[in-house]
């Protein structure tokens, strides 16, 4: 029973963050929900062996691997997406525009590089912690991050150009 209560507390405290992390990785709320669910189901089956002080790190590892496994399995075909209709409406501000543009650019970065960027800069993990979560070497994390940043910068530049083109008629 204590095990169940422990897991219930962990779920209540962490599911939303896991879902948001998954959204940052995959860019679709329905898929993010599935990824977070799969990660928590895997956590549940191993809960007896999970140390409470490392549960967050373990969740990050499982979540990232569920995302990457899904990408590997589906790399040959599109994962949609039209925007989900239930997406929350947010006020148009410079900050949200920046965030949206950066998020859109992030989703153009290859999956493993994207995972490295999300863990390094969204979750603010060290290179060593990121390597542990991704199950690879520190050197690989550094090279994936560097390549990911290059791709992100180029994609963001393209987003900015598209945005300025879209806005031109309104300004004229």
């Amino acid at each position: 029973m204590a095990r169940h209560d422990d897991f219930a507390d962990f779920f209540a405290a962490r599911f939303d963050t896991a879902r948001r992390t998954a959204y940052t990785l995959c860019g679709n709320w329905a898929d993010a929900e599935e990824i977070a669910q799969h990660a928590f189901v895997r956590m549940y089956t191993r809960w007896a062996k999970v140390r409470r002080d490392t549960a967050d790190a373990y969740l990050r590892t499982v979540l990232t691997r569920v995302f990457l496994d899904g990408k590997r399995r589906n790399r040959q075909r599109e994962v949609i997406q039209a925007e989900p209709p239930e997406q929350a409406v947010q006020p148009e501000t410079a900050a949200t525009e920046d965030r949206d543009a950066l998020l859109a650019a992030l989703h153009q970065v290859p999956a493993k590089q994207r995972a490295a960027l999300v863990l390094r800069f969204v979750h603010d993990l060290s290179v060593e912690q990121t390597a542990e979560a991704l199950g690879c070497s520190v050197g690989t994390v550094k090279s994936q991050t560097a390549r990911g940043l290059r791709t992100l910068r180029e994609a963001y530049r393209r987003q900015a150009v598209e945005l300025s083109v879209t806005k031109t008629p309104e300004c004229a």
């Binding site: 879902r19 940052t24 965030r99 800069f121 969204v122 603010d124």
Partner: peptide, 17 residues
């Protein structure tokens, strides 16, 4: 901006315990 990605608005979750 990257750190704020986790704080963006989201639809309600459909998963229960």
């Amino acid at each position: 901006t990257l750190r704020s990605l986790l704080d963006q608005p989201s639809p309600p979750s459909t998963t229960d315990l």
